[in-house]
Design a protein around this nucleic acid. Structure first.
Lengths: 99, 99
DNA sequence: CGCAATGTTATCAACTATGATAACCATCAT
DNA sequence: ATGATGGTTATCATAGTTGATAACATTGCG
């Protein structure tokens, strides 16, 4: 119960950018955010232009792209975004290692 | 405007089970439904048991597994289900062919 | 048959994502 | 400095998902 606690270790580790990347690579929401932004930029659209395609507002696009852990979008929302930038959505299930 | 309309052709085609599979394979929700059920059965859990793991009710599990086109679950809901049966979720974006 | 187990459907309340508007920050160019 | 552009954040109302309960259908087993 003394000695550096695990929560403290974790806290420090999460300040290391590399650890952060590895850690959050497992975070589906974080991965999603990265991909959505990349796809939009690939398509050459601004948030405002994409919003127009989807008949919505740029603020909503920004919110989706910045979805934090407390905000989980609907699957249909992700699909609409994807279609607008020319992509189909596929959900993969990857087995978790139980060592 | 005369001749068998496209909507009629489509209607007939969709009665062909093979065409159905191909058609709905593109439907993310349908794919999801199939996969969720398969994963749960693989894990040997009943809807009721899985519901217990997720601290919810079996009726909610059934609803998720039978998600129709009018019902789009949240990403977090899918993730919770996946984790309970030992899987991680990954979202893939597949380019649409613009011939 | 009667009963348990499994899954489905309906309903309503509670919660939360989304739509819409507005204000704001940062960057860049003129 | 000013204006324009791209993106962020806050807020509120609306829409839709989820939680919970209950009733129902089906299957298989005693």
């Amino acid at each position: 119960m003394s000695r550096p606690s695990f929560s403290e270790f974790k806290k420090k580790a999460l300040n290391n950018p590399e650890v952060q990347d590895e850690y959050q690579a497992l975070n589906t929401t974080y991965e999603l955010r990265k991909n959505l932004i990349a796809l939009r930029q690939e398509s050459g659209l601004t948030q405002e232009q994409l919003a127009a395609v989807l008949h919505t507002q740029k603020s909503n696009i920004s919110r989706l792209e910045n979805a934090n852990s407390k905000n989980s979008p609907k699957l249909s929302t992700i699909e609409q975004y994807a279609h607008a930038v020319g992509y189909e959505v596929k959900i993969e299930f990857i087995p978790i290692n139980h060592t």
